[in-house]
C-alpha cells in the first residue's frame, strides 16, 4: 500500500518525574493502566483523534506534569 504522511499525537511519560499519582489512568483508561505500585503502563503511545481531548486533560491534570503530548507526522503504511 502507498505510504502516506499521517499526522497525529503521541503520548510520552517522563519516567523520572512520574510519581505514580495515577491521575492519568483515571482520565485516560483507554491508553493507560497502572501496575501494582501505581505507576503507569502505556498501552499505546499513539493517541487517536477521538481520545485527543481526554489525553490533553490527562496531561494537564498530572500533579507533576510528567506527561507530554507530542505532535508527530509519521510515515505510516496503509495497513495499521
Amino acid at each position: 500500500m502507498a505510504v502516506i504522511g499521517v499526522s497525529g499525537h503521541s503520548l510520552r511519560i517522563d519516567r523520572i518525574e512520574c510519581g505514580g499519582h495515577g491521575v492519568c489512568a483515571e482520565l485516560l483508561p483507554e491508553l493507560i493502566e497502572l501496575d501494582e505500585w501505581g505507576y503507569p503502563i502505556l498501552r499505546d503511545t499513539h493517541v487517536t483523534a477521538e481520545l485527543l481531548g481526554h489525553a490533553r486533560r490527562a496531561v494537564a491534570a498530572c500533579p507533576v506534569l510528567a506527561m507530554r503530548l507530542d505532535r508527530v507526522v509519521r510515515q505510516k503504511s496503509g495497513r495499521t
Partner: peptide
C-alpha cells in the same frame, strides 16, 4: 506528595 499507591478519587481531589 505521594507516599503509597492510591487508587481512585485522585482527579476528584485535584
Amino acid at each position: 506528595g505521594r507516599y503509597e499507591p492510591r487508587r481512585g478519587a485522585r482527579f476528584e481531589i485535584g
